Structures are given as structure tokens and as C-alpha cells.
Amino acid sequence: MKTFVPFSQLRQRPTIIVDSTGLGAALTLAHWRGAPTPEALRDDTSAGSVLRALRAPTTPGLEAEAVTANHFDVDGFVGVWSLLHPELALQHEHLLRLTATLGDFREIEWHDPLAEHALKLVCWLNAEEKARFYEPFGAPARRRREDEASAEKFDWFLPRFREILENPEAGRAAWEPEVERVRHAIAIMQSARTTAHAYPEIGLLVVRTPEPLPYYALFGPTAGFDMVLSLYDDNRYEFEYKYTTWIDLESRPTLPRLPLTGLASRLNALEQSPHRWTYDGVTDTGPLLRLEGKRLNKAQRYADPDQRPIYSSFIAPNVLEQEVVAFFREKYAGIQPRRYWTWAEVRAAGDAVSG
């Protein structure tokens, strides 16, 4: 039997780290860039690496009885829970993989027969986390360290997750409002009101839809793409590098993130609204390029697009799309996609095309 321990106890006994890194771990099961996850156990999600490990019981370090993570999110939680309940985890492996992927990448194939179940699990986790604790990336605002504060979330969720996994109706009161919001957004995404134009050579998907939508709907059909340009009515726009380029993605090669400085400068030269185009750095979990009013904090940037202000631009939608596509076609022209970029290599690629 394994037990969860706070991250601060990592070196007190042999411990498995999930969705995190740290010195002294008996075994690391994480998709973080550069994490020492055994090669045979690498997976798109950290929970996926855990599930691979459970099918390889002789993995060195898997015998450790303590399990930890330095933050709480859906992927990490599913991985920790799976180590504590290995037989149940393997029994529900496909559902847990869908849940981890939806939680981390906001991607899902809605035709999958277990997609709705995964959505309910993710929405239950999200709703209870916000109601009982604090929102993702919200610990600093409460003057707390995430690696310490998140232990309280694990202690509450770990003994309760099995019931919702096996009978999601037991958590309906928590997940229903969010599930209905996402269902409504999915209907918009699947209607004639929404179009998508793919640029696979640069990993970009351009989505035109009337209003900002929850990520689970907006990014649901974006598997295989690492950048999303969202074009809303009234010349409202956001560009985002997906989380798939922050981690070591196992399933396919990717292009490195590039600094958005040059693109923002070009858009600001065209912009005549009161707002300016601003951007996040390449090491942010999901860098945004957008017109700024008041600067968003990390929790606001992580929240759904329909939960933050998005300002109208002077630039026409087709012009904006052309500018974004032209920028990345030029910058990526001499770069080949591959797996396992280091952060040093990502920065070097950005320096090479920015000079």
C-alpha cells in the first residue's frame, strides 16, 4: 500500500514523484521537459507515465511506498491516485487517460464513448477545488507556497475520487453547472457558426467562432496542433501556445516555442485601438498574445477565455490571420520538428530566428 506525502517530505523516505521533479526521488513519473522519467515510461501526460509504470511492476523505484507532487492539477492528481489504487487504475485506464489529457491539454475526442464521463470527472475536480480551496495558480495570492498548500487538496480528494469515478452521478451537484456550460460551448463549436482552418506545417489551428468559449470546448478538437489563434466577433482575438509545447510530448514531434516579440511589434504597428499587443515568455505554461487592458495574473490567464476581458482590435480578422501565419512560416522555415527539446535548445532556436 502506498500513501501520499507532502512534497516537503520528499527526502524523508523513498518517494515517487508524479508530475513534478525533485532531488532524491526513488522514481520520477512526469512529462515535464527534462524530467528523469525512465524512457520506457514516457507518455504525453504524467498520469500516462504512471499507468505505464503500473504495467511494468519491476520498474526500479516503483516499490517505494510514498508518493508526492509539488502542485495539484488534474493530471498530477490522476497519477497520484492511480499509484495508490493500481488495480482500479488499470481497470479504468482509458477513462483516466482521457481525464488527464482533458485536464492538462484541454483536448478530447467528443465521439469517444467515455468523453462525457471524463468531462464530468474534470469538472467535478475543478468545481470542488475552487469551492473548497483555491483556483489553480491561486496560492501566491494567498501568500502560500503551492507545494505546501496543495497537500490539503490531495488529502481531501484522494479518498473521494473513487466514488465519482465509478458513479459520476454522486458528484452531479458539483459538476453539472460546468458540464452544461461546456456542452453549450461544444454545440457552438460543432455548429456552422464556427470554422477552423489548419496550417499543419507550422502546427497552427485558426478557430473562428462568435464568442470566447471554455477551453474544454475551444481546444477540444485541437489535438495535433500546438498553437491556436481564436478569432471572435467584433475583432476580438487571442493567440496561444498550448501546454503541449511546455512538456516533453511523447506521441509526436513538435516545433519549439518562439519568442512573440516580433509578432507583437508587427501587430502594434498595425493597431490603432487604445490597447497594445502584449505577450508572455516562452517558458510560461500557456503563453498568450493578446490586446491588453489591465495586465492579467497567472490565474486569470489560466482561466477560460470567456472569463477574462478580450478587447476589440482595429485589425481585420483576415489581416490578423495572414500576419500570424506569415510570421510563423518565416520563423519556422529552417526548423525541423522533433521530440525532447531542452529549454536551452528552445531558447537557442528563438535567438537564432530573432537575431
Rank of each mutant, 00 (worst) to 15 (best):
E201V: 11
P86L: 04
A26K: 00
Y237F: 11
F161P: 06
R144W: 04
L54S: 04
Y311M: 10
E169Y: 06
S265C: 03
S191G: 02
Q12N: 15
P200N: 11
H111K: 12
N70S: 11
L229T: 01
D351N: 15
V18H: 04
H117W: 14
R301L: 12
P221L: 10
T15S: 02
L205Y: 05
E39T: 03
L102G: 14
D43Y: 07
D43W: 08
N167E: 14
G355K: 14
N297D: 10
K120P: 10
D19Q: 01
A269P: 01
L205H: 05
A26R: 03
L51P: 01
I186P: 01
L88Y: 09
K153Q: 13
R142H: 11
L88V: 08
Y302M: 00
M227V: 07
D147N: 10
A269V: 00
L249D: 05
E63F: 15
L205P: 06
L158T: 05
A187M: 14
K130H: 08
A53S: 03
I202G: 03
A89V: 08
A187C: 15
Q336R: 14
A352Y: 13
A352K: 12
T3Y: 12
F137Y: 11
N318H: 09
A333P: 08
W110K: 10
R142N: 14
A56I: 07
P60H: 15
E148F: 01
P60W: 15
L165R: 09
A66E: 02
A174I: 10
M227Y: 13
A89Y: 01
D351T: 15
A299D: 00
M189K: 08
Q91G: 06
M189R: 09
A192V: 06
V324F: 05
G355W: 06
P38L: 00
L205N: 09
D73P: 00
R308M: 04
H111L: 14
Y311W: 09
I16C: 15
G262C: 01
K298T: 14
S46N: 03
T195C: 09
Y199G: 15
T99M: 15
R308G: 00
G220D: 08
D44Q: 04
R106C: 12
L288C: 05
F225H: 07
E166D: 11
D44A: 05
R106V: 09
N70C: 11
G24D: 11
R295W: 12
P113F: 06
R42Y: 05
Y311Q: 10
H197D: 00
A173H: 13
E178F: 14
H71Q: 08
F161K: 07
Q322W: 04
